[in-house]
Design a protein around this nucleic acid. Structure first.
Lengths: 127, 127
DNA sequence: CAAACCTTACCACAACTGTGTCAAGGTTCC
DNA sequence: GGAACCTTGACACAGTTGTGGTAAGGTTTG
């Protein structure tokens, strides 16, 4: 039995029928339709529904996030714009006035010590 | 004058001071701090603030979307997980029973025609 | 030291998200 | 033709997001 109706699909995947429609409206999973317009979930959709659930739970993200990720890879200009902005990395304080700069340098050590307790050691670059 | 306080930065970038703090809390733009803890916006931050505004407006996305994009490129396992899911593209109905398949093929033309008239009808909610 | 800044931490509030339920109507199938 | 499905659309409601305030308290500087 591969072709399931929405309620059957809901039952076997742990989603609700309501959410299946919602997931579809977000453009994440769009099942085939029968001649009468009934949604028909095949094995592929069922698999994607289950892995989608895992994806959300394991990384603490939302449906909207996945939808946005899809937009990112479908809309090229959007992707380049977003990536371009992100890559315009925050500069060192090369732009501030000299006296302030001194203060910053002085406090930098204190700041670094404080920051050492905070989790942000990811300095990887894919450039 | 490159080192601006939060209100000055707000004024020159069009954001509100409130939103500058919000943008910072989202991890998007984290200005340096003076010895006393005052936020100090340099030319780099100002530029990023302005381009951020454009980015949001031009593509109709939200701050959370940009923050998520940043997460995507910082957290490698998240990125691979999301991309993996997205690339598990929805299959053709190879998984459904044969008779249903026939119906689908038959109605596909009608469906395509119908879809052609409704490009992306965003259902209006009753205001 | 007082004015005019800044800070964090709350209260507030509209809009959107995620989710349920219900209604009115079409489809399937016995 | 009626039970048991499905469809879209709407009302509802808690939680989050985006945004504004305000309060209590440090900082800077005339």
């Amino acid at each position: 039995m591969d072709a399931l109706t929405i309620h059957e699909a809901a039952q076997t995947t742990g989603w609700s029928a309501r959410m299946l429609r919602y997931v579809e409206r977000l453009g994440l999973i769009e099942p085939q339709r029968s001649a009468a317009g009934y949604r028909i979930y095949g094995a592929g959709e069922l698999q994607r529904l289950r892995t989608l659930r895992e994806l959300l739970d394991e990384h603490g993200i939302g449906l909207g996030d996945v939808a946005f990720a899809e937009r990112l890879r479908r809309e090229r200009d959007l992707r380049t714009a977003v990536e371009g902005w992100i890559e315009s990395e925050p500069r060192r304080p090369e732009t501030v006035s000299a006296d302030d700069w001194l203060r910053w340098e002085q406090e930098k050590h204190a700041r670094l010590l404080a920051a050492a307790t905070a989790p942000t050691p990811t300095m990887e670059t894919t450039a």
